[in-house]
Amino acid sequence: MSEWEPKIVAFLCNWSSYAGADFAGLKRLKYPANIRVVKVPCAGRINPKFILSALRHGADGVWISGCHPGECHFVEGNYYARRKFALLKSFLEHTGIEPGRIHFSWILATEANKFAQMAQEVVDGVKALGPARHFIKKQAEV
């Protein structure tokens, strides 16, 4: 039997983190293959429902990554994202979901090495928690 590998959904900002992932690929840097990327216009546009939906549909962890503070393509989007996800993380912890399942980072397009390193940290962090107890019930099960 093979060793369990976590399923990670990564919401990456088109202007920074997604470009950093692309650059990591161009540099042929190694990072875990169990991350599924969703390209978004801005981290600030991610609705917390997207994260809940990813967890509900089988993701063991979620990674949100955007521009560095003060360098957002949409001026303040990353500040909105930071506030939203700080609240969401505490809400999830209150409901029994380990806070280590949600990761947030700032990665620029030129930071390919940082992207690969953070990808490994996210996978290792979620892997240490083990498989998610998917107690967020799907609508059909309720």
Rank of each mutant, 00 (worst) to 15 (best):
V75Q: 07
I51H: 00
V38F: 15
E71I: 03
I64G: 07
F74I: 08
K27A: 13
V75G: 05
S65P: 13
P69I: 10
R28K: 14
H68N: 06
R28M: 07
S17R: 08
G44Q: 00
N47K: 06
L52H: 06
L26S: 14
I46Q: 03
V62C: 11
R56I: 11
L29R: 00
K39L: 11
H73Y: 05
G61C: 15
K39P: 04
D22C: 07
S65I: 13
N47H: 08
R45N: 11
V62G: 05
L55N: 08
G61S: 06
C67S: 02
A59S: 07
I64D: 08
P32H: 04
V62Y: 08
A24T: 01
I51T: 06
V37G: 03
A24C: 07
L29F: 09
N47Y: 12
I64F: 03
S65H: 11
F74M: 04
C72F: 05
I51Y: 01
K27S: 05
S53R: 14
E71Q: 14
I64V: 15
P32F: 02
G70W: 10
A19N: 11
G66C: 04
A24H: 03
A21S: 14
S65W: 11
K27Y: 09
F74T: 03
I46A: 03
H57Q: 04
F23P: 01
I35C: 12
V62M: 03
I51W: 08
H57C: 13
D60R: 01
Y18W: 14
D22Y: 09
S17I: 11
Y18S: 03
R56A: 08
P69S: 00
R28A: 12
C42L: 06
V38H: 10
P48Y: 05
D60W: 02
F74Q: 02
A59F: 03
G70K: 01
P32T: 11
C72Q: 04
F23T: 07
H73M: 00
L55G: 11
A24Y: 08
G70V: 03
S17C: 12
S53Q: 14
L55M: 09
G61Q: 14
L29D: 13
A33S: 15
K30N: 10
V37K: 10
H68F: 10
P41E: 01
N47F: 05
L52N: 08
Y18E: 02
F50P: 12
V75E: 04
A59I: 02
F74G: 00
V40W: 00
I64S: 06
G58P: 10
V62R: 02
N34A: 12
A59W: 05
F50C: 12
H68A: 08
G61T: 07
